[in-house]
Write a protein that binds this DNA or RNA. Sequence first.
DNA 1: CCCCATAACGTACGAACGTACGCTCTTGCT
DNA 2: AGCAAGAGCGTACGTTCGTACGTTATGGGG
Lengths: 185, 185
Amino acid sequence: MATGHTDPQRRERILAATLDLIAEEGIARVSHRKIATRAGVPLGSMTYHFSGIEELLREAFGRFTDHIVAVFDAHLGAAADRDQAREAVADLVHELSEGSQRDLVLTQELYTLAARQPAYRELTHEWMRRSRVHLEKHFDPRTARQLDALIEGLTLHRALAREPHGRALTLEAVARVTTTDRRTP
Amino acid sequence: MATGHTDPQRRERILAATLDLIAEEGIARVSHRKIATRAGVPLGSMTYHFSGIEELLREAFGRFTDHIVAVFDAHLGAAADRDQAREAVADLVHELSEGSQRDLVLTQELYTLAARQPAYRELTHEWMRRSRVHLEKHFDPRTARQLDALIEGLTLHRALAREPHGRALTLEAVARVTTTDRRTP
DNA sequence: CCCCATAACGTACGAACGTACGCTCTTGCT
DNA sequence: AGCAAGAGCGTACGTTCGTACGTTATGGGG
């Protein structure tokens, strides 16, 4: 209480609580008060640390994309060749789609915001850019772009499907998109 | 007013206004009052025609998926062979991603709801099921599933990208995923 | 040792919300 | 013509919201 000094942990706790609450209840149901309660800070802290709910959301989703990009890096950064990259992509799809519901829900909330407000599109652009950097280490730019979209679709459909598809199907799709050899049409 | 008779147009106008408002402002900012104003109906009508906001949203998104499935049918239903199906898929991706912002935003809002609440997943399941019915007329089930995910990802990335990819890239991705090594052409 | 700049908080206010409920008006039956 | 029934609406209530702003507590300079 009023230490007279800046407390950086307070900001972080508020941001973490914001993401937790969005994941649980959705942007439609978050409020300063709920976030403050969840974070264990007084209501007054909300307007003190953040100029408004807009700023709070944007900063919170900034933290979130940092986290997701880190997951991306962890999977794809280690791949040494094409085949490892394909495996890494499959792992990524399955981790994102069956791991914590949290990341999936937050991703959708962010896309929803991005679909409407250009400000949030900065975050998704950066996210896409960084994933393409990794993919282009192993595939040509056109393929990287297609693969990036495929990852998105596979992750979403796997997460929402009644009976999620297995890893073999993921890997087959990845292989097809990343195989540039000429085949019978 | 009070005509003494059921007025089916009133319900429809409310549902249409609900979708319009969600597309413009997001679920977070819709309210009975705003919807009523937009639809040109009194506030009292809202609780008369719908038991609550939940029911209203679910019915509105039901109309929306009907619409989207119709778009799907229109594109894919007419395809007579594989190549036409591939072209139809490319058309679909481009129409959904560069057509009205409305459909894109509403799709994202629905996915966001579906990611959190199973009730809305019924709608997305039905949607996926019907699109797969069309795709399986031209491709084997595994391929149809992969293609369905690819459509999703291409549409989303194209809509959110800073510089959307061209039709050639869409078609190439579709071709790759739908081209099988060892099968008949 | 004291005091002030300022980090941090508690609270009060007006706006907006969802919903319940009593009222009005039309219609079909007689 | 008159009336019962019920479709449809207007409004008021209690709640929750975001934010502004006055208040409190602290530590470093004097």
